[in-house]
Amino acid sequence: MDLSNRAKNILGFMIFETLLTAYFLWHAYRLPADTPLLSEPMFELVLAITIYSIIGGILISAIVHGTKKAETADERDKNIEAKADGYAYRTLVWSIGFFLVFLYASQGVGIPDSPYQIKTILLSFSFTPLRVLGAMIFILWVSETVKYAVQLRLYRQGY
């Protein structure tokens, strides 16, 4: 597959961010659900993610561009990015909307502690700050992945 450097860069970041998100979620969900966000294990996890993201970003740029200077974005690149941003934004809004409904439904539907309350299976899932953070990170990853995928599609098929 013949890819331009810009497309390779996008593909590299798409894979890298997927791995980084998986790493975060894997470790975050192995912690007890009631772990405070300001705690030692969370600090270590965030620090590790920060360090990996810096190293990963440098490595991807080095692999894609080598010793050459990265090309500056021209009008087509900017147009493609703007279009992809539009898709990513819509994905983000819909995902957050869906998450809010999920969050609300997890408390049950109807008037609490009354015969009018309809308990849902989601009641068994407690949304602690750690889990909300995990869900937000996941939503951001989905949105970013949509952006990268749209960019790659437009670069391949023409825009």
Binding site: E75, G158, Y159
Partner: peptide, 21 residues
């Protein structure tokens, strides 16, 4: 002042350049 890929896309009529370009 653009990339070769952009020239290719314009030439293949896959991208309409701005008026300035």
């Amino acid at each position: 002042g653009v990339t070769r890929q952009t020239v290719m896309a314009i030439e293949a009529a896959k991208y309409s350049p701005s008026l300035e370009l």
